[in-house]
Simulated scan of single mutants.
Amino acid sequence: MQLIAGQGAVDLAQALIGARLSLRGCGGIIIETEAYTAEDPASHSHRGPTPRNASMFGPAGHAYVYRSYGIHLCLNVVARPAEAVLIRALTPDHGLDAMQDRRGDRSLCDGPGRLTQALDVRITDDGAPFDGGDLAIALPPQPQPLLQGPRIGISRAQDLPWRFGLAGASGLSRRFPS
């Protein structure tokens, strides 16, 4: 993940499409992301560092994990201080039995909460590096064909076109506008 040092969240969100994500023996291909920057009123970093968002101000290539609406965990990749990319969906391709055990007979990774449940993301993963240990990301060898549209599930700055998806992929959390 050294390639992302200093890269902004919008650029990283695009670069992560098609990347391979692995977490403790489970994972797949990232097919949907969203970018959040320091100036963005929808970003957790917008008002500065807190104990909850401290990892977002940490080193690039580390995880920022938080609980959304008190229910689901969300997994982000820190781009540069105060910027991160939410991993919204992936196409699972390894550790499928374990993911099925966690999710049952439901969709595995087509949304940030489902993805973290299937992959067994833990709050203790917050701040961990994507260095090939428990967490790893391998960027694709070349840029992938992208879909782009507004972010979803937020109440501020909804119009920013900082949601990216892999063109032609099934399993996105929501369809992109035409």
Rank of each mutant, 00 (worst) to 15 (best):
Asp40Trp: 10
Met99Asp: 01
Ala19Phe: 00
Ala167Cys: 13
Pro141His: 08
Ile87Trp: 01
Gln14Lys: 15
Asp125Tyr: 09
Met56Val: 03
Ala169Phe: 04
Leu166Asp: 06
Ser170Ala: 15
Arg47Gln: 12
Arg88Val: 01
Ala138Trp: 06
Phe164Val: 08
Tyr36Met: 01
Pro143Tyr: 08
Gly61Asp: 00
Leu75Gly: 05
His46Ala: 07
Gly111Ala: 06
Ala118Arg: 03
Pro51Gly: 12
Cys26Pro: 09
Leu23Asp: 00
Asp125Gln: 10
His62Gly: 01
Arg122Met: 05
Gly111Phe: 02
Leu108Val: 01
Thr91Gln: 14
Ser107Gly: 14
Gln7Asn: 04
His94Ala: 09
Asp131Ser: 14
Thr91Glu: 13
Gln7Cys: 10
Arg24Asp: 15
Gln148Pro: 05
Ala89Arg: 00
Ala118Met: 05
Gln14Ser: 11
Ala19Asn: 02
Pro129Asp: 02
Pro177Ser: 10
Cys74Trp: 06
Ala98Met: 07
Arg80Leu: 05
Pro143His: 07
Pro129Glu: 04
Gly168Gln: 12
Leu75Trp: 14
Leu139Val: 10
Asp97Gly: 03
Ser43Cys: 11
Ile154Gly: 10
Val85Ser: 03
Gly149Ala: 09
Ala54Cys: 03
Gln142Leu: 14
Phe57Gln: 08
Ser22Met: 11
Arg52Pro: 04
Leu3Glu: 13
Ile123Gly: 07
Ala89Gly: 02
Gly61Met: 00
Ile154Trp: 12
Gly127Pro: 02
Leu75Met: 11
Arg122Phe: 03
Gly61Thr: 01
Pro41Val: 03
Gly132Gln: 04
Trp162Asp: 09
Ala60Gly: 11
Asp40Leu: 07
Gly104Ser: 07
Arg47Thr: 09
Tyr66Cys: 04
Gly133Arg: 12
Ile87Asp: 01
Gln100Cys: 10
Ala167Thr: 12
Gly165Ile: 06
Leu21Glu: 11
Ala79Ile: 03
Ala136Cys: 11
Ser68Ala: 13
Asp126Ser: 07
Asp131Trp: 03
Leu160Thr: 07
Val78Lys: 01
Gln7Ala: 08
Ala84Asn: 02
Gly149Ser: 09
Ala128Tyr: 05
His72Cys: 13
His94Phe: 15
Val121Met: 01
Ile154Lys: 13
Trp162Pro: 06
Met56Gly: 01
Ala54Val: 04
Ala15Pro: 08
Pro141Ile: 01
Asp131Gly: 14
Asp97Trp: 02
Cys109Tyr: 05
Asn76His: 08
Arg80Phe: 03
Ser107Asn: 13
Leu108Ile: 03
Pro51Val: 14
Leu23Gln: 02
Ser55Trp: 02
Gln100Asp: 09
Gly58Lys: 02
Gln14Met: 13
Ala5Asn: 15
Gly48His: 13
Gly104Trp: 01
Ser55His: 12
Met56Thr: 02
Pro112Ile: 06
Val78Asp: 03
Leu139Trp: 05
Gln117Ala: 07
Ala38Met: 08
Cys26Met: 15
Asp105Leu: 07
Glu34Gln: 14
Val78Pro: 03
Ala169Glu: 09
Pro59Ser: 11
Pro141Arg: 05
Pro81Lys: 02
Arg106Leu: 11
Pro177Phe: 06
Ile152Asp: 10
Thr124Arg: 12
Leu115Ser: 02
Ala35Glu: 03
Asp159Phe: 05
Thr33Cys: 11
Arg47Tyr: 06
Gly18Trp: 00
Ala42Leu: 09
Leu147Gly: 10
Ala98Ile: 08
Met1Asn: 10
Ala118Gly: 06
Leu23Trp: 09
Gly28Arg: 06
Arg106Pro: 02
Ala38Trp: 06
Gly132Arg: 01
Leu21Thr: 09
Val65Cys: 04
